[in-house]
Design a protein around this nucleic acid. Structure first.
Length: 486
RNA sequence: CGGGAUAUAGCGUAGUCCGGUUAGCGCACCUCGUUUGGGACGAGGGGGUCGCAGGUUCAAAUCCUGCUAUCCCGACCA
């Protein structure tokens, strides 16, 4: 088993090493594609199931819309096209022919209208909403779909930016602006809970600036997270789309008063990118560290020296421990591979299992087990009747992971009101900096050019005319967070 | 799409400058045995159209031409 690069030597290399060595995923044959391997997919499924329940509990219904979108649909919302035009996969033909053993595109199969592989589904969904909405009685529509989308990316990285990725996209239609805005914000809270309560990732939430906003949205709210290299990762978004798509797709409804009115929209999503955040928030030089609530295996049992004379009895003892854990509601796995114990220890640390139970001759004879925590590395021998306390230890680990991630964010977040200090700090190290901003694209752009830091989100609006923009000295409009971002 | 580099077994590489045995090594893999409390050991074994297509030559991984793919650096992005 290869050793992984240390975080301090090369964080990007560490990240790739961990994913490959922990068997989460590997590169597909087409540039930017990713094969999510069983261990990684099981992690995704755990997250997905939790979020899926949250989505349904808040009154949304799952549905599925096609991956293929007529090109003309994309043209209908001007800003939306602009945002996605440069990264679309386009289907132009429907046939291949074999010429002397070489496969070629059959020119005669050229499509009347070219088809876009969805980079996101607003257009096709609003095309359908037009058919579904005529009266106020048809609203709201609250739809979610789990799907893959394709964005043809220049520079790709496993989980963080792949040409094809998995996500959920929620799309809702409402009779009033207020209701749509409430929906947008409710989703932000839902994501916050997913990140904080399950992924143990602290979040910073706010509105996006004009420049960073989703193409076609009136307002974008984002979930910003800090990685261990102190760069920011946008890990989820919720958009208030106003009537942009309603208008573009001519979706209107008749009100109680028999008046024709425009439909208000939201859309929101989180993707497999979350797994990238999870890796970079919690991981250390030993590898992954997965929060217990979403870990594929919460407890991994390592049998040691299982080749003694009483092998059968030994195996029964191991099985008995295993079923005790399962009976206590834990996801549990026995590593009975042929590897030596050292390899297994390192392997499960690399793969981030929260708890490990070692069972060797010593335990077999004493009737105890040895428990080892991934977060602290502490080992302790415990009697079998204490196994029922493991769920509370898992919860303790979960909380500890959140707390330590949270203090890391606090330690690396500063508030500055002087631009030269701002530049100096950012040239020295990555961090989050809260500062006042005048709200202009111009200031934001120049700060980006000079420091590579961007506005991650707007935290508050400023009314006090005495407060000035850190960059321009003009009256401040917002308190924002700056950081270098993924 | 610009600038740079690389392409030899599953992975990592030596050999290429200066053409000449059967293309070598490490990891991984297979078999047998010994091992098992923090990255085991011995013996044996399998696996290569040297990125692709041409050319030069008695002879090409090695020299020449063209192509393709990938990686790094830039502009773009969740």
């Amino acid at each position: 088993m290869a050793k992984i690069t240390k975080q301090s030597d090369n964080f990007a290399k560490w990240y790739t090493d961990v994913i490959l060595e922990a068997d989460l995923a590997e590169h597909g044959p087409v540039k930017g594609t990713m094969v999510i391997k069983p261990y990684g997919y099981s992690l995704w499924e755990n997250i997905k199931n939790i979020l899926n329940n949250m989505i349904k509990d808040s009154g949304h219904e799952n549905a599925y819309f096609p991956m293929f979108i007529p090109k003309s649909f994309l043209e209908k919302e001007a800003k939306h096209v602009e945002g996605f035009a440069k990264e679309c996969a386009v289907v132009t033909h429907s046939k291949l022919i074999s010429e002397d053993g070489v496969l070629k595109v059959d020119p005669s199969s050229k499509l009347e209208e070219e088809i876009i592989v969805r980079p996101t589904s607003e257009t096709i969904i609003w095309h359908m909403f037009k058919k579904w909405v005529t009266s106020y009685r048809d609203l709201p529509i609250k739809i979610n779909q789990w799907a893959n989308v394709v964005r043809w990316e220049m520079r790709t990285r496993l989980f963080l930016r792949t040409s094809e990725f998995l996500w959920q996209e929620g799309h809702t239609a409402h009779a009033t602006k207020e209701e749509a805005i409430t929906e947008t914000l409710m989703i932000v809270d839902m994501y916050k809970s997913l990140f904080e309560d399950y992924l143990a990732i602290p979040t910073i939430i706010g509105r996006k600036s004009n420049m960073e906003r989703f193409a076609g949205a009136d307002e974008t709210y984002s979930i910003e997270t800090m990685m261990r290299d102190k760069k920011a990762l946008q890990a989820g978004t919720s958009h208030y789309l106003g009537t942009n798509f309603g208008t573009a797709f001519d979706v209107k409804f008749q009100s109680k008063e028999n008046k024709e009115q425009p439909v208000f929209a939201t859309s929101w999503g989180v993707s497999t990118r979350m797994i990238g955040a999870l890796i970079m928030v919690h991981g250390d030089d030993k590898g992954l560290k997965i929060p217990p609530r979403i870990a594929p295996h919460q407890v991994v049992i390592i049998p040691i020296n299982s080749k003694n004379e009483e092998k059968e009895k030994f195996d029964n003892f191991v099985d008995m421990v295993h079923s005790k854990l399962k009976d206590n509601g834990m996801r549990c796995f026995i590593d009975d591979s042929n590897n030596g114990p050292g390899v297994k220890f390192n392997n499960w640390e690399l793969r981030g299992a929260p708890l490990r139970i070692d069972i060797g001759l010593k335990e077999f004879e004493s009737g105890n087990v040895t428990l080892c925590r991934r977060d602290t590395g502490e080992k302790e021998e415990m009697s079998l009747d204490k196994l029922s306390t493991l769920p509370s230890i898992l919860e303790d680990i979960q909380k500890g992971m959140y707390d330590s991630a949270s203090s890391f964010v606090k330690e690396n977040t500063f508030e500055l009101h002087d631009y030269s200090e701002f530049k100096k700090l950012l040239s020295k190290e990555n961090c989050f900096i809260k500062a006042y901003w005048d709200g202009s694209d111009d200031s934001e752009l120049k700060i980006k050019e000079e420091t590579k830091a961007t506005i991650r989100c707007i935290l508050e609006d400023i009314k006090d005319p005495k407060l000035k923009c850190m960059f321009s000295g003009k009256p401040a409009k917002h308190l924002v967070v700056f950081a270098k971002a993924y």
